[in-house]
């Protein structure tokens, strides 16, 4: 297992090199003037466009530009993101924890709800619970996140004032920026608890409820459908029939026999969902004014912020490799017949 993990991790720099090189290559299709638009924000500055191009080396050959960037990375400098207005490493540190917290708050409910109702739907196929579950799944899957987000915001914030947008209120903002507030982990909810600030903890969680609900509703549908179909397939197999014929209770047949086998595609999908959430969910973050990594990544891409795009892409590649590694390891846990050492 250790050998397998190390092998996968050794592959990581290569993946990152490939991704960033490809991105650099694609960016060369844009003219230096277009790439300089990041630094020029007003027609009044246009007369100095050429000087900006020169200053940032935008006319240099692609390998030279890439080599300069790579040299900086090796020195631990990922560059400066104009969209975030801070160094890329700092931007990742600033935006990633919020996304990570939101992911944690969202992912496990997705997993629980998706698997539970997927199984329920399969077991009670074509019965009322199945119809309701399928209806919920289809609406969730087809509903644009900005519509759902906006509706939730209008009702629960605009009308009821229960769950405001943003990361926290002004009071919590002041509190978490006091010198006495220690940032042990960078995760605000955890830090609030460790600082024994129950009120701030509740406030931070309250701000994550609506984005989490939006993500839950739109993301759970796929997991639910996959669990259902995988479970249905398993339930129709001979070994399930045999188990039932042996007189095993239905609960045991479902939990111990069918579910264990049905979970393999669920694990694959879950890892992809997890990566998707960690990579940031732009629209949800925008609607709820949630300062996550997705919004930054997309803004960097829109504004041709090369260091920003490369930084966020590297993070995404890293997460992808790690999530794949974890899901490969989970396969072995779910199904002992699968061995990951080879």
């Amino acid at each position: 297992m250790l050998k397998f993990c190390l092998k996968r991790l050794a592959f990581l720099p290569l993946v990152m090199f490939g991704v960033t090189f490809l991105l650099f290559f694609c960016l060369q299709f844009l003219s230096p003037e277009m790439r300089a638009s990041l630094y020029i924000k007003d027609p009044r500055q246009l007369s100095q466009l050429e000087a900006v191009i020169e200053k940032y080396g935008l006319r240099k050959p692609m390998p030279v530009q890439y080599a300069i960037w790579l040299k900086q990375v090796v020195r631990g400098d990922l560059g400066y993101s104009e969209t975030a207005k801070m160094p890329v490493a700092e931007a990742i540190r600033a935006f990633f924890p919020a996304t990570f917290e939101l992911t944690l708050l969202t992912f496990f409910p997705i997993l629980i709800v998706g698997v539970f109702f997927g199984v329920l739907s399969a077991v009670y196929k074509d019965r009322l619970v199945d119809h309701i579950t399928r209806f919920v799944a289809i609406t969730g899957y087809s509903l644009p996140s900005f519509v759902l987000g906006l509706v939730l915001l209008m009702v629960f914030y605009g009308r009821l004032h229960w769950f405001p947008p943003g990361r926290y209120t002004l009071e919590t903002d002041m509190l978490v920026h006091l010198d006495s507030f220690r940032h042990y982990t960078g995760l605000l909810t955890l830090d609030c608890l460790l600082n024994r600030e129950g009120g701030a903890f509740v406030d931070v969680v309250k701000h994550m409820i609506l984005p989490a609900c939006t993500l839950l509703y739109i993301s759970v549908a796929l997991l639910l459908r996959i669990t259902r179909s995988s479970m249905l397939e398993e339930l129709s197999k001979d070994y399930v029939r045999t188990a039932r014929a042996k007189g095993l209770p239905e609960r045991v047949v479902i939990r111990k026999h069918a579910l264990a086998n049905a979970l393999i595609p669920v694990v694959t999908l879950s890892s992809l969902l997890f990566i998707g959430l960690l990579g940031g969910v732009v629209i949800t973050e925008t609607v709820f004014d949630f300062p996550g990594i997705g919004r930054w990544g997309v803004q960097a891409a829109q504004q041709l912020d090369v260091p920003g795009v490369l930084g966020s892409t590297m993070l995404a590649a890293f997460l992808f490799v790690m999530a794949n590694l974890i899901s490969d390891m989970l396969y072995a846990v779910v199904d002992p017949r699968i061995r990951v050492g080879g």
């Binding site: 906006l150 915001l153 209008m154 914030y157 004032h161 947008p165 609607v287 709820f288 004014d289």
Partner: peptide, 14 residues
Amino acid sequence: VVDDFNTRKLMLQA
């Protein structure tokens, strides 16, 4: 900075 207009409007309303 609140990018979405609807969110800004709701903030004004609240």
